[in-house]
Amino acid sequence: MNNGEKRIIPLTEGLYTLPALLDEKPHLIGSKCSNCNELYFPKKEKGLCIHCQQKTLEEVELSRQGKIASFTIVLQPPAGGFYHGPVPYAYGYVDLPEGVRVETQFTGNFNNLEIDGDVELVIEKLYENAEGDEFVTYKFKPLKEQK
């Protein structure tokens, strides 16, 4: 029961930090291997490094800014009925400076997307259900559009 009040629900738990204070910003949560230094997003729940096969992964907060490795504007709805966001949508990969590639949606003006372009992490609505509940996710947005 939501008593008429609309709720904000993360589409998936555990992908990013939820800041307790207003002036703090969210970070993606990844894993870092203390044995081989390999990085992963999202974090690996089993703690096993799939590069060196040691159980030496630690949770880390990843950089908020990175560069677009590639992107596409998708004009066809995904199969299976799992996706409830808008179509078209922008989908691709961002390279973070510590050395990890992140699969993501992009937000903002699609015309501002370019390979190697600077982007920053945002938490944004993907869609709203019939009750008005907002489902939110991480996305990346071109830096030139950030306030």
């Binding site: 995904p78 996706y83 409830h84």
Partner: peptide, 11 residues
């Protein structure tokens, strides 16, 4: 994975 399907990565 389910979270990726929800984000439309499977096209």
């Amino acid at each position: 994975r389910p979270w990726e399907l929800k984000l439309g990565f499977n096209v």
